[in-house]
């Protein structure tokens, strides 16, 4: 029995890459940072595929900040996102998510494009992209199109990437007009953790504490990231207080559909989905110093 052997190709430009994809059949596997592909090769989940390495494409690199928009190349690493001044200004929740992703070593290789295309329900960069209504720019040899992240991600591991297409960049409207930018991740430990529940939240508060606008996106509580217009509409115009958020409890429960898995039960995820909402009433935590402990 001969198993098909893997092949590898590394195009040097985007044009080369899309031309190449046009010629290859659907046995090709795109890789950017390579961190997921390496584990899939080890587990045998992918064998004998043509590995198309996009890491050399200059067109996928760089973070461009315009007046109202942030354009992040799909090949930008999570380390670059975590340390980018532009992302810190235009998408602080995304910067926070990138900073707590995996480990330093993984952040140095893994790309935002890879995390999006993996379409894991627990993907850390996804909820921050959902709350900013990210648009993805996809390009092939014949055309370029834009699609919202909500439409692009269809289910766990399922994305609207057509044969021959490459995710070129992510476009975000800057979230400067929000007063709170939150990303909270709950995992079994503080690093090298997979999110059991995560929540990205943008809130515009009036000076007297009324929610003027709010966007919330939960990860790991449904097959895809959950944004609920009902929850957001319910909270808009109300004071950001425990009483208000408590009233949203049933609406959140309706919006999410978590499962039991090896990391946690559905019941836990249901409760923590609301727990993280309650956390919006607090300041972002700063750990006790040693002096405080002693």
């Amino acid at each position: 029995m001969m198993r098909p052997k893997a092949t590898y190709v590394r195009p040097g430009t985007l044009t080369e890459a899309v031309d190449l994809l046009q010629d290859l059949d659907d046995r090709c596997k795109l890789l950017a940072g390579g961190t997921d592909v390496a584990t899939e090769l080890r587990s045998g989940a992918i064998r004998g595929r043509c590995l198309v390495d996009l890491s050399a494409l200059p067109e996928l690199k760089g973070i461009h900040e315009a007046e109202e928009e942030l354009v992040i190349g799909s090949g930008v690493t999570l380390s670059e996102i975590a340390s980018s001044a532009g992302v810190a200004r235009g998408a602080p929740a995304l910067a926070k998510a990138a900073a707590v992703f995996g480990s330093r070593q993984i952040r140095n290789m893994a790309t935002i494009g890879g995390n999006i295309c993996r379409a894991s329900p627990a993907g850390d960069t996804l909820p921050p992209l959902y709350v900013q209504d990210a648009e993805l720019e996809l390009t092939s040899s014949s055309k370029t199109r834009r699609v919202s992240i909500r439409d692009f991600i269809q289910g766990p591991g399922r994305i609207d990437l057509k044969a021959g297409e490459i995710l070129k960049c992510i476009r975000l409207k800057k979230a400067a007009d929000f007063t709170m930018h939150r990303f909270d991740k709950i995992g079994n430990r503080k690093a090298l953790a997979v999110s059991i529940v995560n929540l990205a939240g943008l809130v515009a508060l009036s000076p007297d504490g009324i929610i003027q606008r709010i966007r919330l996106a939960w990860g790991s509580v449904a097959p895809t990231v959950v944004r609920s217009s009902r929850v957001e509409a319910f909270l808009t115009g109300k004071p950001l207080r425990m009483e208000t958020l408590d009233q949203a409890y049933p609406l959140v429960q309706d919006a999410i559909s978590p499962i039991d898995d090896a990391r946690a039960s559905a019941a836990y995820r249901r409760r923590v989905a609301v727990g993280l909402l309650f956390r919006l009433t607090t300041q972002q935590e700063s750990p006790d110093s040693i002096m405080d402990i002693a």
Binding site: G34, V37, A38, T39, L51, D53, S79, I106, M109
Partner: peptide
């Protein structure tokens, strides 16, 4: 699988997991 860091190497000044990097890269 990138979960322990014992294979950490420095590539162009950055720490990465050698087990998660393809040799071709």
């Amino acid at each position: 699988i990138g979960e322990c860091g014992a294979c950490t190497i420095v590539v162009d000044g950055k720490a990465v997991n050698a087990c998660l990097m393809l040799a071709a890269q």
